[in-house]
Computed example of a mutant assay.
Amino acid sequence: MTMIQTKYQETVNYPPEFAVRLAQTAADVRQAQALRYSVFVEELGADGQLIDHDARLEMDCFDAHSEQLLLLDMARRDGDRVVGVYRLMDGGGATSAGQFYSQCEFDLTPLIGSERALLELGRSCLHADYRGGTGMMHLWQGLAKIVRDRQIEILFGVASFHGTDLEAMAPSLSFLHREHLAPSDICVRSNTHEAMDRGAVLDRVAAIKPVPALIKAYLRLGGFVGDGAFVDHAFNTTDVCVVLDLARMNPRQAALYRKRDDLDV
C-alpha cells in the first residue's frame, strides 16, 4: 500500500496512556483497517468490494491516498494499540485519488469551487471499550493541530445513521434540515437525492435523541448539514454530509483550533 509522505509524524501524548499520531507504516494502516472492520463490518454490517474478510480489514481504493489519524492506548499489552481512527484526505490526496470519497455520494461543487483549503474527515470510529470517554476528544485535539498547521479552512465528510429506513429517521432528518442546513455558499447536495425535510418536527427532543453522537458533536462545534441524504445500502447506513466552516465558528467553538502551547509538538 502506498503511504502518504508527510511531515506530520509527531506524536501528541496524553497522560496517562493515550497518544495520537498519523499512521507511519503499513502496519499502522493495517491496525486502523482492522479496527474499522471490527466497527463497520462486524458491528454495523457493512460490506464492500475491497473489504478483506479473510484478513478482517475494512479497506477501499481511497486508503492509498489518505492519511489515518490514530488514537493509541500505550498501556495495552496485546499489540493492538490502535483504539481510534480518523481517515483524512486533503486536496492533494483528492487530486491523487481522482476525487474526494464524499463525491461518491454528494456534489461538492460549492466547496471545491470556493478554492478554500479543504480537509475531508471519514471512517471515524472508536473501539467499543473506549466509547463514552475522552478518546474522541483526544482524536479531535490531534486533528486540531493538523488543521492549524495546514491552515485548513473547511472540514467536511460523510456522517451516518445506522440503517436505511428513511421513514423511521424522518423526524431526525427533518430536524437537521430545518435547524442546521448549510448556507448556500457551502451547501452540498446528495447525488441520489433523498429529501431530509420529511414533515413538521412535532417533538424536538424525540427528533434529536436518535441523531448519532458524532453528528451532534459536529453541530455543537458549529457544523452544518448538506441538502439531502444518501442511502448507502452496502454500508447499511443513511448518510448526511457535514460541513464545518472554521470562519463561521464563534470564538468559543473555534477555541479547539486556536494554537495552544500544551498541544504543540
Rank of each mutant, 00 (worst) to 15 (best):
L35G: 00
K7T: 12
D28S: 02
Q24A: 12
Q24T: 12
A55P: 05
Y14R: 09
Y14V: 12
E42L: 14
G48A: 00
V41S: 04
P16M: 01
Q5L: 13
Y37W: 04
E17Q: 15
K7Q: 12
R21H: 13
D52L: 00
A34S: 15
R36C: 04
M59P: 04
R30L: 09
L22A: 00
E17H: 15
E10W: 13
Q24R: 13
E42F: 05
G48Y: 01
V41W: 02
T11E: 15
A23Y: 06
Q5G: 12
L44I: 06
D52T: 04
A27M: 09
Q9Y: 03
S38L: 14
P16W: 06
G48R: 02
D54A: 12
G48P: 07
D28Y: 06
R30K: 10
A26I: 11
R30P: 03
E17V: 11
A19V: 13
L57Q: 02
Y8P: 10
A46Y: 03
A34D: 09
V12D: 05
A55I: 05
S38E: 14
Q24G: 13
V29Y: 03
G48W: 01
D47A: 12
T11A: 10
N13A: 12
P15V: 12
D52Q: 07
P16V: 03
L44T: 04
Y8F: 14
K7P: 14
T25L: 06
Y8W: 14
Q33F: 00
S38M: 13
Q33S: 05
V29S: 07
R21F: 10
K7M: 12
G48I: 00
R30S: 08
G48C: 01
E42G: 00
Q49G: 07
L22C: 09
S38Q: 15
L50N: 10
Y14E: 06
D54G: 15
V12W: 07
L57P: 01
